[in-house]
Measured scan of single mutants.
Amino acid sequence: AIERGSKVKILRKESYWYGDVGTVASIDKSGIIYPVIVRFNKVNYNGFSGSAGGLNTNNFAEHELEVV
């Protein structure tokens, strides 16, 4: 089962992080479509409006993740 702290591989082909491994930061139990927040070591794009980097978290559905 996917739980907080799990290392997961991203299976969503259109994702910037496809094939990468991230760490589960949290799981939303409220029934939303993409409840699993995954944190990565790298950012997906340069930040804007003065922020240092881009996003390094993204929401995924459990079926888009594979525990490694």
Rank of each mutant, 00 (worst) to 15 (best):
53 G>Q: 12
36 V>R: 00
30 S>M: 04
68 V>I: 12
63 H>V: 09
56 N>W: 11
68 V>P: 02
10 I>A: 01
62 E>T: 10
67 V>I: 11
20 D>E: 14
14 E>N: 10
7 K>C: 15
33 I>Y: 09
1 A>D: 08
2 I>Y: 03
19 G>Q: 09
45 Y>Q: 15
52 A>Y: 09
67 V>K: 07
4 R>T: 13
66 E>D: 04
21 V>I: 12
65 L>Y: 01
14 E>K: 04
21 V>K: 01
62 E>G: 05
25 A>C: 15
27 I>A: 01
50 G>M: 07
46 N>T: 10
21 V>C: 08
60 F>E: 01
8 V>W: 02
48 F>Q: 15
47 G>N: 07
65 L>I: 05
11 L>A: 02
36 V>E: 00
22 G>K: 01
66 E>A: 08
47 G>D: 15
66 E>Q: 12
33 I>V: 11
15 S>R: 00
24 V>M: 02
10 I>R: 01
44 N>A: 08
26 S>V: 06
54 G>I: 08
23 T>H: 05
45 Y>H: 15
10 I>G: 01
18 Y>T: 03
25 A>N: 05
2 I>A: 02
7 K>S: 09
4 R>S: 09
28 D>H: 04
60 F>V: 00
8 V>C: 09
23 T>K: 04
17 W>P: 00
28 D>W: 04
55 L>C: 15
50 G>I: 06
61 A>C: 07
51 S>C: 15
13 K>E: 08
63 H>F: 10
24 V>E: 00
36 V>F: 14
32 I>F: 07
59 N>W: 09
16 Y>L: 06
62 E>D: 07
36 V>I: 14
8 V>Y: 00
1 A>F: 09
61 A>Y: 06
23 T>W: 08
58 N>A: 15
27 I>S: 00
2 I>D: 01
46 N>E: 15
17 W>G: 00
34 Y>H: 11
3 E>C: 15
21 V>M: 06
36 V>P: 00
32 I>M: 13
38 V>T: 00
12 R>M: 04
61 A>S: 07
54 G>N: 09
46 N>A: 06
49 S>M: 13
13 K>S: 06
47 G>Y: 06
20 D>V: 12
35 P>C: 13
5 G>N: 04
51 S>H: 10
9 K>Q: 05
52 A>F: 11
57 T>D: 08
55 L>R: 08
38 V>E: 00
47 G>H: 07
31 G>M: 10
9 K>H: 03
68 V>Y: 05
34 Y>T: 05
7 K>G: 02
62 E>Y: 15
13 K>A: 08
49 S>E: 15
17 W>H: 05
3 E>L: 12
5 G>W: 04
15 S>A: 03
13 K>T: 08
62 E>C: 13
18 Y>N: 02
49 S>W: 12
1 A>I: 13
25 A>T: 13
27 I>N: 03
55 L>T: 13
3 E>Y: 10
29 K>I: 10
15 S>V: 03
16 Y>P: 09
59 N>M: 08
68 V>N: 02
53 G>S: 10
43 V>P: 15
10 I>F: 03
66 E>N: 03
38 V>F: 01
21 V>T: 09
21 V>Y: 09
68 V>T: 06
5 G>F: 04
16 Y>V: 08
47 G>R: 03
13 K>I: 08
20 D>P: 02
16 Y>E: 08
40 F>W: 02
40 F>Q: 00
5 G>A: 01
9 K>S: 03
12 R>G: 02
62 E>P: 11
4 R>N: 09
51 S>D: 14
60 F>A: 01
26 S>F: 13
41 N>K: 13
5 G>S: 02
18 Y>Q: 02
11 L>Q: 04
44 N>R: 07
10 I>C: 09
68 V>L: 10
46 N>G: 09
35 P>W: 13
59 N>V: 06
31 G>L: 12
28 D>A: 07
20 D>Q: 09
30 S>I: 06
67 V>N: 05
16 Y>D: 05
14 E>S: 12
60 F>M: 01
50 G>A: 10
45 Y>S: 15
3 E>V: 12
5 G>E: 03
4 R>K: 13
39 R>Q: 13
9 K>N: 03
30 S>K: 07
33 I>F: 11
36 V>N: 00
53 G>M: 10
32 I>N: 11
25 A>V: 15
63 H>Q: 06
9 K>C: 10
37 I>P: 00
10 I>H: 02
30 S>T: 12
45 Y>I: 15
9 K>W: 04
24 V>T: 00
59 N>R: 12
26 S>W: 14
19 G>R: 04
48 F>T: 14
56 N>S: 10
16 Y>G: 04
31 G>W: 07
48 F>W: 09
30 S>L: 05
6 S>N: 08
15 S>D: 06
43 V>D: 13
41 N>R: 09
47 G>C: 15
53 G>K: 05
9 K>P: 03
4 R>H: 09
5 G>I: 03
2 I>R: 00
19 G>L: 12
49 S>V: 12
37 I>M: 14
7 K>D: 04
64 E>M: 03
38 V>S: 00
30 S>N: 07
40 F>N: 01
13 K>C: 10
41 N>L: 10
37 I>F: 09
17 W>E: 00
19 G>P: 01
67 V>M: 07
2 I>C: 11
37 I>E: 11
21 V>D: 01
59 N>K: 08
2 I>G: 02
47 G>L: 04
30 S>F: 06
52 A>W: 09
9 K>A: 03
2 I>L: 11
26 S>L: 08
47 G>M: 05
19 G>C: 10
36 V>Y: 15
21 V>H: 04
7 K>W: 12
53 G>N: 08
58 N>G: 15
24 V>W: 03
47 G>A: 07
17 W>Y: 06
63 H>P: 03
18 Y>K: 01
4 R>P: 14
41 N>M: 11
7 K>Y: 13
32 I>E: 09
26 S>H: 13
27 I>W: 04
32 I>G: 13
21 V>W: 05
36 V>Q: 00
35 P>L: 10
28 D>I: 07
54 G>R: 05
30 S>A: 08
29 K>Q: 09
3 E>K: 13
6 S>R: 05
44 N>H: 13
12 R>P: 01
4 R>C: 15
32 I>S: 15
2 I>K: 00
33 I>D: 13
42 K>F: 06
28 D>F: 04
42 K>H: 07
28 D>E: 11
51 S>Q: 10
53 G>L: 10
47 G>F: 07
35 P>V: 12
32 I>P: 08
60 F>W: 02
28 D>C: 09
34 Y>V: 02
58 N>F: 10
20 D>T: 10
47 G>W: 07
6 S>W: 12
53 G>Y: 06
2 I>P: 04
50 G>E: 14
5 G>L: 03
20 D>M: 11
49 S>R: 04
4 R>M: 10
24 V>P: 00
46 N>Q: 13
65 L>H: 00
22 G>L: 04
14 E>M: 06
20 D>F: 13
13 K>Y: 07
16 Y>W: 06
63 H>M: 05
43 V>R: 06
41 N>E: 14
59 N>C: 15
51 S>R: 01
50 G>S: 11
33 I>G: 12
38 V>Q: 00
1 A>H: 12
42 K>L: 08
15 S>G: 01
6 S>E: 04
59 N>P: 08
43 V>F: 14
65 L>C: 03
44 N>Q: 14
